[in-house]
Nucleic acid binder design. Structure first.
Lengths: 169, 169
DNA sequence: AGGTAGTGCTTGACGCTTCAAGTACCAAGG
DNA sequence: CCTTGGTACTTGAAGCGTCAAGCACTACCT
């Protein structure tokens, strides 16, 4: 059982440092981001939805929204129910195709997103960019961008556009 | 409401690309990592616990384990209950201090961790490092390491040690 | 001793994500 | 028409993480 595959290429020191640091940033940093939204009764991904919809005055098909946000449709559906109940978004059926629904942000939703975005950007800076100089930031964008671009198989609707074109922060 | 604070420093293009890419990697990549463990009835963080304990033949205080893994004690407690029920770890009270508990990995737990670790490393490579050259990997380790080191206030028990000294992958 | 504070860990409730089904609708072929 | 298949979305159950309390034990103070 031990010798089933000795050809495994373990991580070298640099890779291990990168991986463990990523885990640490995610495990510690992301929960901290949530703390900014919790007092308002929302979670980070819901803010992301409001921000994405704020850039789409025509509204957005739910499936397209899910693709943009890298969410499953099920997950999106659960979050949308809450955002609709809160009055932050409206969903209307499409006239042409009875299956599709179009989501639009309401004024209240747009107002909310604009209200909390400064605090959110400040959090992201405090968490990440305050600790990096310009060269490190550029290198981080380069490396993570390369990785993110290769995940692309999750975005079937937009094979040629930039991977994550919208969103304020 | 809009002019409450116009001094907000928004993210520039590079920072936004870094941030959105990080979100994409986490939102898409991490759930994919989980899929390797799910068939075995475990989640990634539980594998991490087994890996961490596998390096500590003397056993480890639960609070120290929690600090090493960047987990809350509550979260650790919930995961440990499951790992104990599965027979992968044992927890014994400490003789000197009746409050502390010492966790040790069992033979079954060690065997399990060794059995799945090749697949896990392969996942991490497929997700991250296969898309990066040596320079990008080094830059990623440098940038994320800088960020992770600054989160340190979460590790009160080890102010001078390396931030994440152990763990196989 | 006895009381008070503090540490180490556990528990229960609640919200979120996932997975597997399920509903509603469109589109082709008989 | 009406079935078959596929698309867009929703629902319910199960598991995980978080928060706020709670329990057990230790340490200090008088």
């Amino acid at each position: 059982m031990d010798g089933m595959n000795d050809e495994t290429r373990w991580l070298d020191d640099t890779e291990r440092r990168a991986w463990l640091s990523l885990l640490a940033v995610v495990l510690v940093g992301f929960p901290e981001l949530e703390r900014t939204f919790r007092p308002h009764g929302l979670v980070h991904v819901e803010y992301g939805l409001l921000a994405a919809l704020s850039n789409e005055d025509e509204g957005l098909r739910l499936s397209e929204l899910a693709a943009q946000m890298n969410m499953s449709q099920s997950r999106l559906s659960h979050r949308m129910r809450k955002l609709v109940d809160l009055g932050y978004v409206e969903v209307t059926g499409d006239a042409c195709d009875g299956r599709v629904s179009i989501a639009r942000v309401t004024d209240a939703g747009r107002r909310f997103a604009e209200q909390v975005s400064p605090a959110h950007v400040a959090d992201v800076r405090r968490l990440i960019f305050d600790h990096l100089d310009a060269a490190q930031t550029a290198a981080l964008a380069d490396a993570l961008g390369a990785v993110a671009d290769r995940l692309g198989s999750t975005c079937p609707g937009a094979p040629k556009g930039p991977p994550v074109p919208k969103a304020r922060a």
